[in-house]
């Protein structure tokens, strides 16, 4: 475990000096979306069955946390990892020390989770000031968001260790997977608003399960079995992604 902590310390050293630069895209951006859609568009939406009877901004706020978590996890697992393998080859420097490839991957994944956690807490703190939450149950949505972030981010880690272009693949994945997922996986409105045929697509995404869980911990109304089902799905996705990533990291770094 100690080598993992040492690598984490390396990431932390960078972060301590550069955290300000990450605030805009990881904290301010989701807050702006919450402001525009939640308060702006929300002022045109009367509470009804589509919003669980809640004011729209309250309905949106916990899901926005999860959507932001998936975005942050994706950002942190994509270019920084590709860059460490290809541009500054930092990973090769790390694995030429006693740190093993598995320990490096563990540290990198933990770092992504930590970044998701930090920006999630910052988001919660500010959104709470604007009265976007109804109760403290939303604090439980933070671990949910980290799990949902990792369920997607771990696969991006695997992808980042598989591609060798300058980011064209990421561009396509962001555009055809990440953006549609953010838009269609029940963040802004329940997927019951969409045509029935498109709903199974949302069920596959980690974001939808995260959204459901995050709303449930704040607003209640979810059976224990359903909750366990959502959690298990996200855990399995995370584990699967990490396993593939492990195989890819070994293939890339052990040459």
């Amino acid at each position: 475990m100690r080598p993992v902590l040492l690598v984490l310390e390396h990431f932390w050293t960078w972060y301590r000096r550069n955290w300000r630069a990450t605030v805009v895209s990881t904290v301010l951006l989701p807050l702006m979306f919450l402001g525009a859609m939640g308060f702006g568009l929300g002022s045109r939406i009367t509470p009804g069955p589509a919003t669980d009877g809640l004011p729209y901004v309250v309905y949106l706020a916990p899901a926005m946390l999860v959507a932001a978590a998936v975005q942050v996890a994706t950002a942190e697992s994509s270019f920084p990892v590709l860059g460490s393998l290809k541009w500054d080859r930092r990973y090769y420097a790390i694995t030429s020390t006693p740190v093993t490839v598995d320990q490096l991957l563990m540290a990198q994944a933990l770092w992504v989770a930590l970044r998701v956690l930090i920006s999630g807490l910052a988001y919660i703190a500010v959104a709470a000031l604007f009265g976007a939450f109804t109760n403290a149950g939303v604090l439980l949505a933070v671990p949910v968001s980290v799990l949902a972030g990792m369920a997607f981010g771990s696969w991006i880690l695997a992808l980042a260790a598989s591609v060798n272009d300058e980011g064209v693949t990421f561009g396509n994945v962001f555009r055809f997977v990440l953006v549609p997922m953010t838009l269609f996986a029940g963040t802004y409105y329940p997927i019951s608003q969409l045509p029935a045929w498109s709903r199974p697509l949302a069920w596959i995404t980690p974001l939808w399960h995260g959204n459901e869980l995050a709303r449930a911990v704040e607003f209640g109304g979810m059976g224990a079995l359903a909750a366990v089902g959502h959690v298990v799905y996200l855990v399995v996705l995370t584990a699967g992604g990490l396993l593939v990533a492990r195989q890819r990291f070994h293939a890339r770094l052990k040459v």
């Binding site: 568009l41 589509a50 919003t51 838009l183 269609f184 802004y188 608003q193 045509p195």
Partner: peptide
């Protein structure tokens, strides 16, 4: 599509 269809039934 996401906004037009999804919000169509909510926003009026």
């Amino acid at each position: 599509f996401a906004l037009g269809i999804g919000f169509g039934g909510i926003v009026g």
